[in-house]
Design a protein around this nucleic acid. Sequence first.
DNA 1: CGTGTGCTTGACAAGTTTCAATAGACGTGG
DNA 2: CCACGTCTATTGAAACTTGTCAAGCACACG
Lengths: 237, 237
Amino acid sequence: MTIPGSKGEILTNEICKVCTVRSVALFQDLDLEVFNKFHSAIREVEISKGDHLYTIGDPGERVFTIRQGIVKLVQYLPDGTQRIVRLLKQGDLAGIEATTGSTYQHDAIALTSVDTCAIPVKTVEMLAAEQPQLHRTLLTKWQDALSTSDSWLTRLSTGPSRYRVIRLLIWLAENTSEKAFYLPGREDIGNMLALTTETVSRTIADLRRDGLIELVRSDFARADLRKLKAIVKDATD
Amino acid sequence: MTIPGSKGEILTNEICKVCTVRSVALFQDLDLEVFNKFHSAIREVEISKGDHLYTIGDPGERVFTIRQGIVKLVQYLPDGTQRIVRLLKQGDLAGIEATTGSTYQHDAIALTSVDTCAIPVKTVEMLAAEQPQLHRTLLTKWQDALSTSDSWLTRLSTGPSRYRVIRLLIWLAENTSEKAFYLPGREDIGNMLALTTETVSRTIADLRRDGLIELVRSDFARADLRKLKAIVKDATD
DNA sequence: CGTGTGCTTGACAAGTTTCAATAGACGTGG
DNA sequence: CCACGTCTATTGAAACTTGTCAAGCACACG
């Protein structure tokens, strides 16, 4: 179990068995028996807001299952401009490129405090050798990443600022179980949508004036999802 | 061999053995013996400019290795706006999501005349069962797709129109062996860069006036790669 | 109780879209 | 072989959106 208040890496012992995200994560249908042979290599890693989970260019030695919190994946242009290419949430896999022997392709930075399981790539390989369905789970994770990426291009990088912000808010709201959802800093939002912080700030202020969202705190908001979806003509499930 | 002038699906016979893209494609390190057991299921599919290779939402029954030509992957917003999320070229795999049992996630449309090998997903599975390294190749293809996608977000959807167009031109030029490279229609370029056809047209006209590119035909161009890279501060290998 | 950091707002400049008109390329049929 | 229609590319002018620069505000932290 986690030692309350602790930071950094902790040996997992029984934690995996009761893991709240196992059903959606990497080991979703793994034999407990097989799993027990290897899970001693797995570490729990907790980092605070702003910390790096890993850094672009580093040798990819571990993948991370996100247990709690939100992580941004950042890439940079030669001039230093940064672009957030994806957000990872509970159940997502960070550093998946490590499984092909590649170096990390992004800076992975915590937007909130983040709780992960760090799994050495070697462990993944050994597990996969005994349990081929892990391959299938991994493929699914690749597909998730790619389809998120496509969606960021289609929905978050297309159209006027108002629509982009709204589509991001919908995503944020729908990926939270609470009524209020985490609202990233204006600069981060800008780096997700290819807008400046000023434009984002103005757009969010407009949405508040129009009664479409309501700030609970500067970084938590509630949204009228139905109205937001109507504006961008999203399916109103 | 291909029957000259023919269209549509053709049974492959000896074609795979002499395939010019096998070294970069799906069967790059497959045992010829194993391969021969299955390759009768593989069809050569040729389509002309503007034709669909597959359509979004269709059940994904085959993956396609691109042997020749360029394919665009298109997604749509609810209002009908389209966005091109990737271009596929020689050696790339189209419809890779079919390997996870998913439906196709895009419209795949030929920008030029296109020559592919269509491989049933079932064949891929059978081959993978006998030759596990195929899993690894597939993972690499997923990674390629994802890293292209990230790059489209970072480099093609960020910054002013001039930079986006230049970065696209660099990509097009570097993914061609000829001196002149295929230049897509202005509307397609717009849908790749989230710009209007008019803006793209003006930007390309500017680049021509500045002597940075030269049109061989309306859809073929030569570029001064060194200068273009200097402008966007790309590595000048 | 200052100081820093991030958010907001304003005014103006720059960039992009929109609407409209023209020019060019291409294929078809007279 | 040329006229015609169609489709794409180009260009102009005006409207609009977004970026830039600058200042003020609010909240958290030391």
